[in-house]
């Protein structure tokens, strides 16, 4: 368990930038990208959230004076940003829909699989906060995979661990979160 966390908190002496360090840069890039799209005619154009990250990445690597250790570490930073964006977005939409200061997701979902995308995100977020307190390392994998849309391979590279470990952690974390969500919605 330890190895995961030490790597994510990264060792700058080995040339790697931690997700935390990268975050502001990624964040600004996302903002610039979104702003540019706003200025164009694609205002209401719907996109898969993770596509935005990919696009941001492509723009950044074109920018020569930014040298990234690798794509994976960029993505792990972007995952943090995407998590914030998606959760905030889901909250706002939920609030608008209910017309009030709804704090929690409605817990009347009969079948979890049928839950609305926004509700789902909020359910995952609530459970993820709990997982972070218990097993922060595995929570990081959830952020990368679920919010950042990273592949197992990318996650393995970003964290410097084997793909098999990523799969195990993910299975564990996934079941753990689901158990939590199920308990909340029962």
């Amino acid at each position: 368990m330890d190895d995961v966390s030490t790597i994510l908190n990264s060792d700058p002496s080995e040339g790697g930038k931690s997700a935390e360090e990268l975050f502001p840069l990624v964040y600004n890039e996302l903002r610039r990208l979104a702003g540019a799209r706003m200025a164009g005619e694609v205002r209401q154009h719907t996109l898969q959230a993770t596509a935005l990250v990919h696009e941001a990445w492509l723009r950044m690597v074109r920018d020569e004076d930014r040298s990234w250790e690798n794509k994976a570490s960029f993505f792990s930073a972007a995952s943090l940003a995407m998590r914030r964006i998606l959760v905030e977005h889901a909250r706002r939409k939920g609030r608008q829909k209910r017309g009030g200061a709804q704090k929690r997701v409605d817990l009347e979902i009969t079948d979890l699989a049928d839950s609305e995308p926004d509700e789902k995100i909020l359910l995952v977020e609530d459970a993820l906060i709990q997982l972070e307190q218990r097993h922060p390392e595995w929570a990081k994998i959830v952020v990368m995979k679920y919010f950042g849309g990273m592949t197992q391979q990318e996650i393995a590279e970003a964290l410097g661990i084997g793909e098999r470990s990523v799969r195990r952690y993910w299975t564990f974390a996934r079941a753990w979160l689901y158990d939590r969500i199920r308990a909340e919605t029962e």
């Binding site: 996302l30 903002r31 979104a34 702003g35 799209r37 706003m38 694609v42 205002r43 209401q44 154009h45 719907t46 996109l47 898969q48 959230a49 993770t50 935005l52 995407m82 914030r84 964006i85 998606l86 905030e88 977005h89 889901a90 706002r92 979890l112 699989a113 995308p117 926004d118 789902k120 995100i121 995952v124 995979k145 679920y146 919010f147 950042g148 849309g149 299975t171 996934r174 079941a175 753990w176 979160l177 689901y178 158990d179 969500i181 199920r182």
Partner: peptide, 26 residues
């Protein structure tokens, strides 16, 4: 939960989000 969670987490966060949404959220 291992098998049940598989479909729930079958894909990345599923929200379709517009650029305007992203800007507002940011």
């Amino acid at each position: 939960a291992v098998s049940e969670s598989e479909s729930f987490f079958s894909e990345a966060a599923p929200t379709q989000i517009t650029t305007a949404d992203v800007v507002q959220t940011l």
